[in-house]
Simulated scan of single mutants.
Amino acid sequence: MKKRSTTVFIQCIASLFALALLAPTPFAAELTAAEIMKQVDDRYTGDTSYSDAVLTLIDNKDRQRVRNLAMYGQTKDDVEKAVIFFTTPADVKGTAYMSFDWEDENKEDDTWLYLPALQKIKRIASTDESGSFMGSDFSYTDINGTDYPDFTYTMEKESEMVDGHDCWVIISTPKNEEVIDKTGYTQTKSWVRKDILIVVKGIINVKRGKRVKYFSASELEQIDGVWTAKKLQMITTRNNKKEHASVLVVNNTRYNQGVDEEIFTTQAMQRGL
């Protein structure tokens, strides 16, 4: 199956757990950077998934805005589907985001955003994926993931410790300007835990404004056999100063307990939960 690369983060909304929900894979010696990232990309994250989540947006004065989400995912032979519903507060309640990641590389992946204030469903073009997702530091690229073949991978360090765990440090570089324009990123450095192949830390160079993003995945737990990061953080900086930060805390995660097929429709996005 064509899979989105986990060079940036979140997946399960077709990628909202993208960097973080990775199945354990035995350590193999002398893997190349590309082989390691392919194993990360080929992780198993369940046939279906559900999670509650709290998304906190933090400005440069540490003022916070909180968003509550419900996230659903489903993987079938030809497509990975994901949908997110915003449940509170009132100003975003009813907003929904859905993505289909098709196996066929010649078939354009589909993404939709429903804004209840406008009572309108908007399709997100691939050229808009570098934009901010609902005012957060996660872009649509981070939510949707990126295509593994679009990058070259270089081993920067064979070993570096992060929170007491040995990691590879791998550089992911877009192969051409088209990929840079689509993702908005010029380079990503990832720290991959060797024992379970989870990206636990990342530094991302942003093309626009020469910003730098800092990603972390923490509070790791094995749920229904799937390693899950229960806390994801992204911090955006410019000139070494924090501009904004976003923290996603994931709760009540369930895998392989079934999801109603009808929830992955534009009609369901409009109806809400």
Rank of each mutant, 00 (worst) to 15 (best):
D110S: 13
N176G: 07
I13M: 06
Y255A: 11
K122E: 09
V83W: 01
R43N: 08
I121R: 11
A53L: 04
I13E: 03
I36H: 05
E177H: 05
N144A: 10
M1W: 13
R67H: 10
K207Y: 00
E221S: 09
T75Y: 02
P116T: 14
L115V: 15
K76E: 15
D78R: 02
V212Y: 02
N60Y: 05
K182G: 07
T7D: 15
K230I: 00
T146A: 13
G225I: 07
N251T: 12
N252Q: 10
K213E: 02
V79T: 14
Q74N: 13
Y140I: 07
T95A: 12
D128H: 11
D41E: 12
A28N: 14
K242Y: 05
A245W: 00
D101Q: 09
V54Q: 09
C167Y: 10
Y140R: 13
E103D: 15
D260Y: 03
N60F: 08
D101R: 03
A33H: 07
D147Q: 01
V162Q: 02
L113S: 04
P24F: 03
E221G: 00
D110N: 12
V179H: 04
N106D: 15
A29V: 00
I198A: 04
D150A: 10
A28Q: 15
D110R: 14
R193E: 13
C12G: 09
S130D: 07
F151S: 13
K207D: 03
L197T: 05
Y97M: 07
S246R: 03
Q222L: 00
L22I: 15
M134T: 02
I170L: 10
S159T: 12
R67E: 06
L55T: 09
S190H: 05
R208F: 11
K207P: 00
V259C: 09
Q267Y: 08
T154G: 12
M71E: 04
E178C: 06
D166H: 05
K207R: 11
F27T: 06
M234V: 00
A53P: 02
Q267M: 10
D104W: 13
T32A: 09
Y114I: 11
Q267N: 09
N239V: 00
S99R: 02
G209F: 04
A117N: 10
L19H: 06
Q267H: 08
F85L: 08
M1N: 14
M134C: 03
L57A: 04
D147L: 06
T253D: 05
Q267D: 08
P26Y: 01
I124K: 11
D77I: 10
Y148A: 07
L273K: 15
T56H: 12
D224A: 12
E105D: 12
Q270D: 09
K182T: 08
L220Q: 02
A125F: 13
V206K: 08
D78P: 07
Y185V: 01
S99V: 03
E262F: 10
K207L: 04
N144M: 07
K3A: 14
G184N: 12
D109I: 12
G135W: 03
